[in-house]
C-alpha cells in the first residue's frame, strides 16, 4: 500500500515553505499536496517520491510528521471518470474520509488518492470492479 505524509504545522505565514524548503534540500519530489485548516494549526498532506525519506528529514528538523496508508486509484480523465469510482464506493457503503486528485496525463488518466477506514478491503473491491489501484512503486515513480 502506498503511503502519504502528514505534517503538523502552525497556521502562520512562513511555515509551509519551511516544509517545502527541507524537501527541496533533500531532493524530494512532491507529486500532490493538500492543506487542512484547523484554526491554530494545519495538517499538510504530501504525496512524494520518497515518503519514508521525507518523514525522516522532517522529523529530524523537529517537525511532527507521520505516514499513513493512502489508496491511489487510476481514473479516466474525462467527464464521469471520477463518478464511476464514487458510484462503486457508494454502492458498497464506503465512506471517504479525505481525498484529493491530480492529473497524470491530461485527457487520458488521473490519480485519485483517498483515505478510507479499510484501504486493503477497498482496494480489493475497486480492483474487482475493473479499476486499477496503483502500487507504491508506480505511484512514487510517476
Amino acid at each position: 500500500m502506498a503511503e502519504q505524509l502528514s505534517v503538523f504545522i502552525d497556521n502562520q505565514p512562513g511555515r509551509l515553505n519551511a516544509v517545502t524548503g527541507i524537501l527541496r534540500d533533500h531532493g524530494i519530489d512532491i507529486r500532490a499536496m493538500t492543506i487542512a485548516d484547523h484554526r491554530d494549526y494545519g495538517i499538510v498532506k504530501l504525496l512524494v517520491n520518497d515518503p519514508r525519506g521525507a518523514q525522516r528529514v522532517l522529523t529530524g528538523q523537529g517537525f511532527a510528521a507521520a505516514l499513513k496508508p493512502v489508496l491511489a486509484v487510476a481514473i479516466a480523465d474525462r467527464p464521469g471518470g471520477l463518478h464511476e469510482l464514487l458510484e462503486i464506493l457508494a454502492e458498497h457503503r464506503i465512506n471517504v474520509l479525505d481525498a484529493y486528485g491530480f492529473v497524470s496525463e491530461p485527457h487520458r488518466w488521473a490519480v485519485w488518492c483517498m483515505e478510507v477506514v479499510d484501504p486493503v478491503e477497498t482496494a480489493r473491491l475497486v480492483t474487482a470492479q475493473g479499476l486499477r489501484v496503483l502500487d507504491d512503486g508506480e505511484l512514487y515513480g510517476l
Binding site: L5, I43, T59, K68
Partner: peptide
C-alpha cells in the same frame, strides 16, 4: 504537540 505521538489523524 509531542512529535512522537503524532499519528497524522486531524
Amino acid at each position: 504537540l509531542n512529535a512522537r505521538l503524532f499519528t497524522g489523524d486531524p
